[in-house]
Simulated assay, not measured.
Amino acid sequence: MNEFFLVNNRSITIGDINIRQLCMHNFDEWGLAAQAVKGYLKGHSDEINGELLKAHTSHVFTLLSKSTHLDETALISIAEASESLLIQLVGAMIKVNDAFFSEKESKRKSRRKSQSKNADQANWFDSFQLLIESGHHSADIMQMTYGAFISYLKAAQKQRSQNLLTNTHLMRAAQHAKDKAYAKLTDELKPSDD
């Protein structure tokens, strides 16, 4: 899905069922289920089929209930009536939440996992803090979809890196500048009154 799909919190409709993006405010309710399904898809073909439903029934129902207006009872009724419709819904749910399901685990992230469980908790707060420093509000972050959250986080990390690089260049230029050149550099960096 593209950035505008993520930012606008768009959805896909199959029949009269609207499949939405999973949001950050209830990540604790769907994160483990999504991780289990993602692990299954990683080890098997990306094709959604009855084997996924059998291997991870409760996880699939949890994810569908969080991304649709249906409760688990309604989902069980759909599964009993038409497995092909349920497979379509699961495929759409994975497609809509592609930011999570196609996300690759970085080597840095796996090193952090092995260090301690507390590092993961701190990581979420660190991520939120980075977004807050970039101008987002905590309540807004919680209402973001997972895809939008990750995209904004990557943009904030990129901006932070660019700012550090710029500051490094300025420090080096200031260190090697003569008095007049340093004064000229600082004058150029001051905001203009225009």
Results as ranks from 00 to 15, higher is better:
residue 106 S to T: 07
residue 161 S to E: 15
residue 142 M to S: 06
residue 146 Y to R: 00
residue 50 G to C: 07
residue 60 V to W: 06
residue 110 S to A: 08
residue 1 M to D: 08
residue 108 R to N: 03
residue 97 N to G: 02
residue 111 R to E: 12
residue 171 M to G: 11
residue 68 T to Q: 07
residue 6 L to K: 06
residue 76 I to L: 14
residue 188 E to G: 04
residue 59 H to S: 10
residue 160 R to A: 10
residue 17 I to H: 05
residue 161 S to N: 15
residue 4 F to R: 07
residue 56 H to E: 09
residue 27 F to C: 05
residue 55 A to M: 09
residue 188 E to K: 07
residue 102 S to N: 14
residue 89 L to N: 03
residue 75 L to Y: 02
residue 101 F to W: 05
residue 45 S to K: 04
residue 130 L to D: 01
residue 158 K to I: 13
residue 180 K to G: 03
residue 18 N to K: 10
residue 185 L to V: 06
residue 142 M to A: 08
residue 156 A to P: 03
residue 171 M to C: 11
residue 13 T to P: 03
residue 57 T to P: 01
residue 188 E to P: 07
residue 55 A to T: 08
residue 24 M to F: 02
residue 55 A to W: 07
residue 38 K to C: 03
residue 123 N to V: 02
residue 136 H to D: 15
residue 7 V to W: 01
residue 163 N to F: 14
residue 120 D to L: 05
residue 100 F to C: 09
residue 129 Q to V: 08
residue 91 G to E: 15
residue 58 S to F: 04
residue 2 N to Q: 10
residue 74 A to Q: 14
residue 34 A to R: 01
residue 127 S to A: 12
residue 18 N to A: 14
residue 20 R to V: 02
residue 183 A to Q: 03
residue 112 R to H: 06
residue 1 M to I: 00
residue 54 K to H: 04
residue 159 Q to Y: 09
residue 194 D to I: 13
residue 115 Q to G: 05
residue 144 M to E: 05
residue 183 A to H: 10
residue 85 L to M: 14
residue 156 A to V: 07
residue 139 A to V: 01
residue 173 A to S: 05
residue 182 Y to C: 00
residue 142 M to T: 10
residue 46 D to I: 14
residue 183 A to R: 13
residue 84 S to C: 02
residue 15 G to M: 05
residue 133 E to Y: 02
residue 92 A to R: 14
residue 128 F to Q: 10
residue 42 K to T: 12
residue 30 W to E: 00
residue 14 I to G: 02
residue 20 R to I: 00
residue 110 S to N: 09
residue 82 S to G: 10
residue 64 L to T: 00
residue 33 A to D: 02
residue 83 E to L: 11
residue 112 R to Q: 14
residue 138 S to N: 08
residue 44 H to D: 01
residue 108 R to Y: 10
residue 111 R to N: 07
residue 134 S to A: 14
residue 190 K to D: 10
residue 178 K to L: 00
residue 87 I to P: 14
residue 166 T to M: 14
residue 154 K to L: 01
residue 163 N to A: 15
residue 47 E to R: 11
residue 34 A to Q: 04
residue 17 I to G: 04
residue 16 D to H: 15
residue 158 K to R: 11
residue 191 P to F: 01
residue 37 V to C: 08
residue 84 S to Q: 13
residue 183 A to G: 13
residue 116 S to H: 09
